[in-house]
Amino acid sequence: MPNIISLQTIKETLNAQIIVADSGLDDMIEHVYASDLMSDLLAFGKPNSILLTGLATKQAVISAHMAEFKGVVFVRGKLPKDNADKYARDKKIVLLSTQFDMYESCVRIYAAMSPGVLPTSATIEEQPPEHTLLSQDFHIQGRDFSNAGNVSTEIKEILKKIGIDSQISRRVAISTYEGELNVIMHANQGTARLIVSPTAIEVIIKDQGPGIPDIEMAMQEGFTTASEEMRAMGFGSGMGLPNINKNTDELRIESKINDGTTVYMKFNIEK
């Protein structure tokens, strides 16, 4: 049995200040992540986790939301910047702030996470997915870094609304986010199409960008064609395509130089 701890217990054990907890502190936490590097969360984070971080910005909350985390704790007494709290409120993510540093916070949560603590409520009720077909297009504006993540967030919200399993919608959101970033970095514009069928979710991202000269090379971790500026901003990790590959059941990339790139992603819905 995994060790489980409630958000309420975490709040108490860290003497934390509540910044956002509109949805209450009853949710149970199964994993703890201590990180300030948000891509790591997107690549490796598991749902029902809590994030301990010194990065008190909206980026931290967006990433936690993408990775299906329940809450974020800002360590060393940090308080939210750039409307991070507003975003957390919108997305129903609990936001706490503790005076302890990251190590002390880890140790305290671990100590409080005794195996005797059991979840008070049963696991989240599963809603049967509606058997409706859905197809919707989204526009992605190239070079518009300020809106990066909008399309993937919107798709995630839609999937949630129609009752898609959170594990799957999370994989869809992460893959779409990476695909969206690729368009923003390299093309003037692009589109994302979301298709939901009873058995699978498909996302097709098309752009009129420069094309990928060597897809095999682009699939390797660490490969990036992002410019110095983009990397200075933290984009262009060279994690994009490998990260998509990790999260999809089927991935096809078609690319023509000076014409554009199409990324086709499929996620099976398991019965």
Partner: peptide, 11 residues
């Protein structure tokens, strides 16, 4: 080890 796990072991 991930950061959290290593932290616990050091503790």
């Amino acid at each position: 080890l991930p950061t959290y796990t290593l932290a616990i072991k050091l503790h």
